[in-house]
């Protein structure tokens, strides 16, 4: 998607088996592409390639991601089943510094706190893990860092949302949080303890993980299935894009 920080310069989507697809938007304003394969098939794949333009340098201030013009932020003020705090998160919240009056620096403090309170470890949590479960366990991945940060912010009445995207490197998707301040959404990455900038490509946002999965689908048939995801993000020079 295009935001104040990023611009999609090119995008090619191909699906196999090849079927017509319809582009649209979901209930959160995220662009979606959808289709149905009616014929029998034994595999299904989606290949997405593209170039997104993002700022070239890290910033020591958060970078505006999107403006919030309507009243769309109301729904992002409240915890969901996934972000609802329990004893572990409530305990962590006791170490949140007193508000300084500057929302951005308060939120950055919370980001630092979340970053330093959780150990990054793959395979301990799963997509169904809630913020509280991850916090109680003490370790997790980007999804868990983000959910915990949202839980704390929402408990303090700060509108914030979950973001799915990619970061430079090879592997899977990434997740971080966005915070609304004076009508502008800013991206904050508690896993990397950084402001969202040159290394992030945003795909979608929602209240939590459930709202913004990159792929969703169903199939009918009495077979089991497995899924393989591979993402590769590498920097390209401006000239290479212009061609």
């Amino acid at each position: 998607m295009d935001t104040l920080r990023q611009r999609v310069r090119s995008l090619q989507v191909s699906v196999l088996p090849d079927v017509p697809c319809t582009a649209g938007f979901d209930g959160f304003g995220n662009p979606i592409i959808e289709g149905t394969v009616a014929a029998e098939h034994s595999s299904f794949s989606v290949d997405v390639q593209g170039v997104a333009e993002v700022p070239s340098a890290e910033s020591d201030r958060p970078i505006p991601e999107q403006r919030e013009e309507g009243d769309g932020s109301m729904v992002f003020k409240y915890n969901t089943a996934r972000t609802a705090p329990g004893p572990a998160i409530r305990k962590l919240m006791e170490s949140v510094p007193e508000p300084s009056g500057d929302i951005i620096s308060d939120v950055a403090d919370i980001m630092h706190l979340v970053h330093s309170s959780l150990r990054y470890e793959k395979g301990v949590t799963c997509p169904e893990t809630t913020a509280e479960e991850a916090m109680a366990g003490g370790s997790g991945v980007c999804q868990d860092y983000s959910h915990i940060m949202l839980a704390i912010l929402r408990s303090r009445g700060v509108p914030c949302r979950y973001v799915v995207g990619y970061t430079v490197g090879e592997g899977e998707s990434h997740a971080w949080a966005e915070v609304l301040c004076d009508g502008v959404w800013y991206g904050m990455d508690p896993t990397g303890d950084s402001f969202v900038g040159p290394r992030h490509i945003k795909v979608s946002h929602g209240r939590d993980y459930d709202d913004c999965r990159i792929n969703r689908g169903v199939f009918f048939g009495a077979r089991s299935s497995s899924q393989l995801v591979h993402a590769l993000v590498s920097p390209v020079q401006d000239q290479e894009v212009r061609r």
Binding site: F28, G72, M74, G206
Partner: peptide, 11 residues
């Protein structure tokens, strides 16, 4: 907004 009946998807 905390009601399970409110569907953001329909907003």
């Amino acid at each position: 907004f905390t009601s399970s009946g409110f569907l953001k998807e329909c907003d």
